[in-house]
Simulated scan of single mutants.
Amino acid sequence: MTKQRIVVGLSGGVDSAVTAHLLKQQGHDVVGIFMKNWEDDDNSEFCSSRQDFLDAASVADVLGIEIEHVNFAAEYKDRVFAEFLREYQAGRTPNPDILCNAEIKFKAFLDHAMRLGAEKIATGHYARVRFNAPTGKHELLKGLDPSKDQSYFLHRLNQAQLSKTLFPVGELHKTEVRRIAAEIGLPNAKKKDSTGICFIGERPFREFLNRYIQKEPGPIRDATPPAGDKAHGRVIGQHVGLSFYTLGQRQGLGIGGVKPKGAARGGGEHQPWFVARKDVEKNTLWVVQGHEHPWLQSHQLQALDASWIAGDPPAAADGSPLRIAAKTRYRQADAPCLMAVHDTHQNAAVENSQRTAGFALQFPQAQWAVTPGQSAVLYDGDVCLGGGVIASAQA
């Protein structure tokens, strides 16, 4: 392999640390960059940025590589956090980690690395990149460790980004990464994996949103009985604001002791309540009782703001709907489906949207709690094809 100058995003975690080690072992000229993407809570117990940088610097010292601390907080606030708040205020549930990868880690960071003379960048993501010679395209593949695969979060990357990117630990299982880290004496070999959204950390999510989104309390209505039942739509509680709930949510509803009408007859009083719909116009939260309630099951969805790894959407030779697989949320098994691509302007399903190039998916088996704002990510086996933002779902 030709020696290259590779800039590694060192997060302070074990995955990026082993990434840098593997590349250095291969003889590359490796430089580390620590990205600071959030600075509103530098003095907060929930902000781990300072400790993460110290961990990253310790790794760089052990590996004998340079490390630079780069502040992308302004770009992050403008390109990621502002969109995050807009989506929540509209009643949707966005995934900021996907936007962060597309806009910060593989755009702002990539641009900075190129200015440093890098030929490639590398991160500790569990995914793989493969060049397909017959098509002349780079492909994004799932990581070999199925329990850690992160291709879902990387589906918005394009050909230019993938051509400059390496994911060394995508070829390994997490247990092997930990073993390597311990073997070479990395100080963070046993460091706990980070979880959740980077700027929220371990703090309660509702507490964080309170700082940015105004509470607008409203009724919680019961949709469990049939529509013809007099109990349908009865108010059984009050929500604190639609932005603070997501479809399929079970905890934190404050209605755990409420029984459905006719529970004595149906025997369903012990089934948990779930958020099933959010009516933004009427500021109403609809809940149902039982995991398998029809309102939580969707056979179809519409997605907008599509992004395709190859640059163009995949298509069947005869123009018929394409048989592929999709995930409507992370850590979900691939679900077989039919995809039809469509173009749309100002789709009514997404308020004030300028998004174009969407697609529709049809699932033979119903998908649970398909959530507007989340991403539907498409696969052909191990190959990630791209995806889009879920705008609506139907039974």
Rank of each mutant, 00 (worst) to 15 (best):
C100M: 12
T135R: 10
A315D: 02
V288M: 04
E103N: 14
A393W: 00
Y152D: 04
N43H: 14
G381H: 08
I200C: 01
V62W: 00
H21T: 11
P294E: 02
W273V: 11
V383C: 01
A348V: 13
P294R: 07
R277Y: 07
D15S: 11
I67E: 00
I200Q: 02
A349D: 08
A108M: 06
A223W: 07
P146E: 07
G267Y: 11
G267F: 07
L140P: 01
F34G: 00
H291D: 02
V8A: 12
L10F: 09
D42P: 00
F109N: 06
E176L: 12
D343T: 13
D42E: 15
A349P: 00
A20T: 14
Q271P: 05
Q332K: 14
Q251V: 11
L322P: 05
H21E: 09
F131K: 15
H138E: 05
S48G: 07
Y76Q: 05
G388I: 11
Q302A: 15
H112C: 13
K120N: 05
Q289G: 05
Q25T: 15
V288T: 09
F167G: 00
T93I: 02
L110D: 01
T284P: 00
H299Y: 04
Q51G: 03
L110N: 00
I184F: 02
I104M: 04
H291W: 02
F274K: 09
Q271H: 14
P314K: 05
K190D: 10
H28G: 08
